[in-house]
């Protein structure tokens, strides 16, 4: 019974990842796409650094003013450049970041194709290498036993 009570209590705890109740979840959704400038590998949604808190406040204010997500993102890009975005836009040098998996797959496919073509060519070569005499002997070996003297 005590175990059940403990389990119920544990389940009743709020998940630690839910946003604090001061801003709407949409604020955190937008902040998740933006870097926290003073942190290492943390978004503006996760960090509790003063600057990240202020960024969330700015997002909340701009949402209240009726600005769109793209406009809010642009506000930060104008001040920090594309660096502030977790997903770099697909243009310029960052285009390579998006294309590199495709290039990698293409290279892998090309390598595989070359390898398989080589294997096939070698198989054909060995097949044509077998002499007439050898084929005849092989066929004789494969004849049913009763025909043999």
């Amino acid at each position: 019974m005590g175990w059940l009570l403990l389990l119920a209590l544990a389940l009743a705890q709020p998940s630690p990842n839910t946003p604090p109740p001061d801003f709407s979840p949409e604020v955190f959704e937008i902040a998740r796409e933006l870097r926290c400038p003073v942190c290492q590998g943390e978004s503006a949604a996760e960090s509790n650094a003063g600057i990240a808190v202020e960024m969330r406040r700015i997002i909340a204010e701009q949402l209240a003013q009726g600005k769109s997500r793209a406009e809010i993102r642009e506000f930060f890009v104008q001040r920090y450049g594309d660096w502030i975005l977790y997903e770099p836009p697909a243009r310029g040098l960052t285009l390579w970041v998006w294309l590199s998996p495709l290039v990698g797959l293409g290279l892998l496919g090309f390598g595989l194709w070359r390898y398989l073509a080589g294997v096939r060519a070698r198989a054909q070569l060995t097949a044509s290498d077998v002499s007439e005499e050898e084929i005849a002997r092989l066929e004789a070996e494969l004849q049913p036993r009763e025909r043999q003297p």
């Binding site: 202020e54 960024m55 700015i58 450049g81």
Partner: peptide
């Protein structure tokens, strides 16, 4: 206090 001008200038720290 909140560092809003810092963000306006795109400061990192």
């Amino acid at each position: 206090g909140r560092g809003r001008i810092g963000i306006e200038y795109g400061y990192y720290g």
